[in-house]
Computed example of a mutant assay.
Amino acid sequence: MPASMTGQTAIVTGGSRGICLAAAKAMLDRGANVCITGRHEEQLAEALAHLAAGNRAIAVAGHAAEAAHREETVATVMATFGSIDVLVNGVGINPYYGSLSDLPEDVAIKMYRTNVLAALEWFKLCEKAWMAEHGGSVVNLAAAGVYRGGPLLGAYCVTKAALVRLTEQLALEKAPLRIRFNAVAPATVRTKFAAKFWEGNEEAVAAAYPIGRAGEPEDVGEAIAFFASNDSSWITGQTLAIDGGLLLTTSVDSLA
């Protein structure tokens, strides 16, 4: 039986849909309080209705890469629930498909700022507000592309690889404070974010996976909840591939 998270509170960035919404649901099912974030208030309202968790779930709208939004969210969570035991860095962007040789510098900077630096900045606020004295768990959403690059996905894969290295470094630095850091690295999951890789081509995508299907948000959401909870209390600095066996094959064509 999964460990209870009753009395704990999680912030899930990018929690209005997809993998991170599934993670929020999985932690709520374990008894946690959850704050989801996202850029669009309407999507957040729909997500809260889907979660149907009453006063155990709240939402704060804003851009994860902006300091003011991060500060507002942390302050709101502390005022509402009194703790921040879990941080799920789920926000990521992938605005560029193509060769690294043609990657515009401003796009590269935007991707790094959102996919890597924002994760560190979110943690620093959570550490100061609660985790430094009480411990906690941080779960970063990477991608299977950290193991092998995919065609046209070089820039995205590089930022996710940096996120994994950040996970490992912080796991080492913060272990004495009992703050754990882990990451999940999914291959193609049937979300809007990854629609380019599966929509309209589902049979061919499924055939590429030894297990016979692409991923579902819940496949990754449950793994995130595992890392967030005390079920993984002696695990830190690890990255879990969630890929239906794709990395066992000799050809990797899509690692969103």
Results as ranks from 00 to 15, higher is better:
Val116Gln: 10
Asn201Thr: 06
Arg180Tyr: 09
Ala129Ser: 11
Arg165Ser: 13
Pro2Ala: 09
Leu248Gly: 05
Asn89Thr: 05
Arg56His: 15
Ser99Arg: 15
Asp253Ala: 12
Met5Cys: 13
Gly154Trp: 14
Thr236His: 00
Thr191Ala: 01
Lys196His: 15
Trp130Asp: 08
Val184Asn: 02
Ser254Thr: 00
Ala214Arg: 05
Pro151Thr: 11
Met111Gln: 10
Ile109Ser: 09
Arg39Gln: 04
Ala64Arg: 09
Gly14Tyr: 11
Ser83Cys: 12
Val91Gln: 08
Thr13Trp: 01
Gly215Phe: 00
Ala187Phe: 02
Ala52Arg: 15
Ala64Tyr: 11
Leu247Ser: 11
Pro104Glu: 06
Thr167Val: 01
Ala49Pro: 13
Ala3Met: 14
Ala68Asn: 09
Tyr147Ile: 03
Ala24Phe: 00
Met5Gln: 14
Asn230Tyr: 01
Arg180Lys: 09
Ile36Pro: 08
Pro176Leu: 03
Ala225Asn: 07
Ala129Asp: 04
Gly212His: 12
Ile19Leu: 12
Arg30Leu: 13
Asp219Ile: 12
Leu21Ala: 12
Gly14Met: 08
Ile179Asp: 01
Ala68His: 14
Tyr96Pro: 00
Ser99Ala: 15
Val205Met: 04
Cys126Glu: 02
Ala67Asp: 08
Asp243Ile: 15
Tyr156Asn: 01
Ser137Ala: 15
Tyr96Gly: 00
Asn94Pro: 04
Ile224Gly: 05
Met1His: 10
Ala119Ile: 06
Ala32Gln: 06
Lys110Leu: 14
Glu199Pro: 02
Thr191Ser: 04
Ala32Phe: 01
Glu121Lys: 15
Pro95Gln: 09
Val146His: 12
Val77Met: 03
Ala47Val: 06
Asp102Pro: 03
Asn201Trp: 01
His50Gly: 06
Ala52Pro: 08
Pro210Asn: 13
Ala207Pro: 10
Asn115His: 05
His69Arg: 12
Thr236Leu: 00
Ile179Ser: 03
Leu100Asp: 10
Gly154Glu: 15
Ile235Asp: 07
Gly145Val: 11
Ile84Ser: 08
Leu87Phe: 04
Gly215Asp: 02
Val189Cys: 10
Thr6Phe: 14
Leu51Arg: 14
Val146Met: 11
Asp106Trp: 10
Ser229Val: 03
Lys25Phe: 11
Arg17Cys: 01
Val184Glu: 02
Ala53Ser: 14
Asn230Asp: 07
Leu172Asp: 13
Asn140Met: 08
Thr80Gly: 13
Met1Phe: 04
Ala26Gly: 02
Ala171Glu: 03
Ala132Gln: 13
Leu170Glu: 05
Ala241Trp: 05
Pro104Trp: 04
Thr9Leu: 02
Gly150Gln: 08
